[in-house]
Amino acid sequence: MPFSADEFKNSLSHFASGVTVVTFSDTTRAGGLTVSSFSSLSLDPPLVLFNLQKNIASHDPLLASGLFTVNILSSDQQELSNQFASGKIDKHELIQKLACDLGHNGAPFLNGTLARIECELEKQVDGGDHTIVIGRVLFAISDDSKRPLLYYRRNYYNI
């Protein structure tokens, strides 16, 4: 029974997820992108994963850097999610404007997040039009006083 790409995307939109921004720095520039496909993978060793679209400008620099930070956004960071999702904003300039600090792994991180998970690239796996990025966790910290930003059916929600 065939189905359209629109039907597939609409079905996937029914899965609520948290919102993350993955930040990185290659040898010349920092960058970042909004990612909703983030997931934990393993506790021992500590591994996480996310899916990275192959045709975006951040794909090759992020993988080449080998280091990245998963910033789990808090309920008041919807605008950051939109900025890092936009193809019209220079993410290097945005990171500089936000005055991002560098984490233990040397990658920039966003301030005021619900949590941050600093990683080094463990493995990359082909996933069709995406690359499945597996990161080994080097450091993690969270703020239990904050609430998450959620994404469901192409809209943001808070709990």
Rank of each mutant, 00 (worst) to 15 (best):
F8A: 06
K9H: 13
K9E: 01
N10L: 13
S11A: 15
S11V: 12
S11M: 12
S13R: 12
S13K: 03
H14L: 13
F15R: 00
F15I: 12
F15K: 00
A16R: 08
G18D: 03
T20V: 04
V21A: 07
V22N: 07
V22Q: 04
V22A: 05
V22E: 02
F24E: 03
F24Q: 05
T27E: 15
T28G: 00
T28Y: 09
T28V: 10
R29V: 08
R29W: 05
A30H: 06
A30F: 00
G31V: 13
G32T: 06
L33G: 04
T34I: 10
T34L: 09
V35P: 00
V35Y: 03
S36Y: 00
S36E: 09
S36D: 05
S37C: 03
F38I: 02
F38R: 02
F38G: 01
S39I: 04
S39E: 00
S39F: 01
S40K: 07
S40M: 03
S40I: 08
L43S: 11
L43M: 15
P45F: 14
P45W: 12
P45M: 14
P46N: 12
L47M: 12
V48F: 07
L49N: 05
L49F: 01
L49V: 06
L49A: 15
L49T: 13
F50D: 02
N51T: 10
L52H: 07
L52F: 11
Q53F: 11
Q53K: 14
K54Q: 15
I56N: 07
A57D: 15
A57K: 15
A57S: 15
S58K: 02
S58P: 08
S58T: 14
S58C: 15
S58G: 12
H59F: 11
H59V: 10
D60F: 01
D60H: 12
P61G: 05
P61W: 10
P61N: 06
P61K: 08
L62Y: 09
L63S: 03
S65M: 08
S65A: 15
G66F: 06
G66T: 07
G66W: 04
L67V: 13
F68M: 09
F68G: 03
T69I: 13
T69N: 09
V70S: 01
V70M: 03
V70G: 03
V70Q: 01
N71M: 12
N71P: 01
I72W: 04
I72V: 15
L73F: 06
S75G: 10
S75V: 08
S75D: 13
S75L: 01
D76Y: 00
Q77F: 09
E79K: 13
E79P: 00
E79N: 10
L80Q: 09
L80N: 11
L80H: 11
S81A: 15
S81P: 05
S81Y: 07
N82G: 11
Q83T: 06
Q83N: 13
F84S: 06
A85I: 05
A85K: 01
S86D: 11
S86C: 12
